[in-house]
Design a protein around this nucleic acid. Sequence first.
DNA 1: TACTTTTACGTAACTAATTACGTAATTAAT
DNA 2: ATTAATTACGTAATTAGTTACGTAAAAGTA
Lengths: 316, 316
Amino acid sequence: MEFFDKIGKMAIGSRLRMLSEIVTEDASKIYNLYGIDFHPKWFPVYYVLAEGKANTITSIAKEIGHSHPSVSKIISEMVKAGLVLEKSETTDGRRNVVSLSAKGNEVTLKIQDQYTDLNSAIEDMLGQTTHNLWKALAEWEFLLEQKSLLKRVTEQQKLRERSNVTIVDFESMYLDAFVNLNTEWISHYFKMEESDYKALNNAEEYILNNGGYILVALYKGEPLGVCALIKYPTDDFDFELAKMAVSPKAQGKNIGGLLGAAVIDKAKSLGAKKLYLESNTILKPAINLYHKLGFVKIPERPTPYERCNIQMELVL
Amino acid sequence: MEFFDKIGKMAIGSRLRMLSEIVTEDASKIYNLYGIDFHPKWFPVYYVLAEGKANTITSIAKEIGHSHPSVSKIISEMVKAGLVLEKSETTDGRRNVVSLSAKGNEVTLKIQDQYTDLNSAIEDMLGQTTHNLWKALAEWEFLLEQKSLLKRVTEQQKLRERSNVTIVDFESMYLDAFVNLNTEWISHYFKMEESDYKALNNAEEYILNNGGYILVALYKGEPLGVCALIKYPTDDFDFELAKMAVSPKAQGKNIGGLLGAAVIDKAKSLGAKKLYLESNTILKPAINLYHKLGFVKIPERPTPYERCNIQMELVL
DNA sequence: TACTTTTACGTAACTAATTACGTAATTAAT
DNA sequence: ATTAATTACGTAATTAGTTACGTAAAAGTA
């Protein structure tokens, strides 16, 4: 089993399966040892019947956490072995009411000792270990019920990706990225307009020297996201959030979200009270993001952009 | 999963299987999350190939602890998916030499992140538990390799049965048992002889009042085994171990062994140096037991019993 | 050199579970 | 009183492994 140490936690499923196989294989031999004609897989069903708790296929399935076809098969095997009786003598004709036969009840007597011995053998093993497998299993079942492994991995993924992204202030070395990333999406969804050329071709003069800012998202050092904070010409707003662009190859890494949050932080630190933005409703993920960031739709107001069909604001 | 708490350790196999199922089901979704077209069950094989360690079906199987048909199937699936290449261009025409294809190597790049994230997710879970599942699994694998569950249960069984057996000195209330148990096996394998009647019908007089002893094995209070220690008439031996009988319904509980050991102890405590016994070689389990107790075959000597064809002694 | 044993590995059949699906009985809703 | 939805459960197909078996190549042996 040393293989598992190298392979890491990736194969915990395989590892559990293998141990389960080793254990159940021996379980089968153990029944033999006690002279009981019994398959280990019957045990959960048998146990429920011996307790006299549930007595229809579905209720047993629910009790033991199996699917009903599984119980159905086990019951038919146990019927064949003479351990279980089926009867439909209830008011509900769909139900298959089952119970232990006389022979099935005999097993109960025989199985007592085995139960005791297996229990002590396992207790003995648990006593020899420093890490209690039984309790560890219960803890894992609990944790996985609270939050699935899938969700946990997704969270780790987000966490890791976030650490790959750093948001930095604009420098002239990022000018190309600022222009290209914006040109790319604008000409993909719409067409470049007069105001686009103005803002992109003279970014430093038009945005930065005018009291505005540009933030750049670096993904593993590469500038793959940009966003501008342009000083708003009137008193209605402090800044306009504009020219936000994220490279398609960095999509799904929440770079937009990080960039947006950073831009808002920046505005806040500058004492801004109100942000403005313009967009188009066909850009669903963008609108969604703005929403998440706290922007709300406002009534139509004049804009130099042809593609603009929605305007939003964020009160800080 | 509360079912398992009631059912006890009996279903540890089921419990392991269920957890394994939950985990591997999510594993499949996790590959999806990272855009990798990959079945979780391929992973162990893939890992070995990526490490460049083993490259034939059997060697991979050995490495990962699967059967070779399992690896064979996985390889053919991975070949179909274009991740693995097969070639028989070796000197040994039986071997199927496999390796990752270019596409297979691409997976290595994609899988890195997933590997990291899954590892951290699991480490995170392990950190949240007080009982470390990972280490507990390793401990169980180790313990079961040392001694199988079957063997452990067998030992517990022996231990428990021993506690059900008590060896007591003869009392007149056990006379019936002494007579019946002996009559039963003697007339089953042979026929009752003159000396049998003498010893059984006048046990108290013939054995006890003659410096001999009778010990009784009580199984859960019931006298199911007897054994006599008869004063030997000459100086050759101190006692003859005779009239040992165990009820067929208590067979396999090592009552003979316990009884034998107790009788020898008794003889020792009486200062005896040499014990004698007579038997017949068709009684294999008995001869076997005498052997285990330390008796060795001795040359033929006169005996009143027709059925006797072997004689043994034990030097204390 | 010829014969036997071992090794490598594929195919087939089995196992213990699952999902998917169909059918009949019951219950709820119009 | 119909009709629709739900429930109970069996059968079939699928899954991820196993053992059993057969065949061909290689290695060992007389």
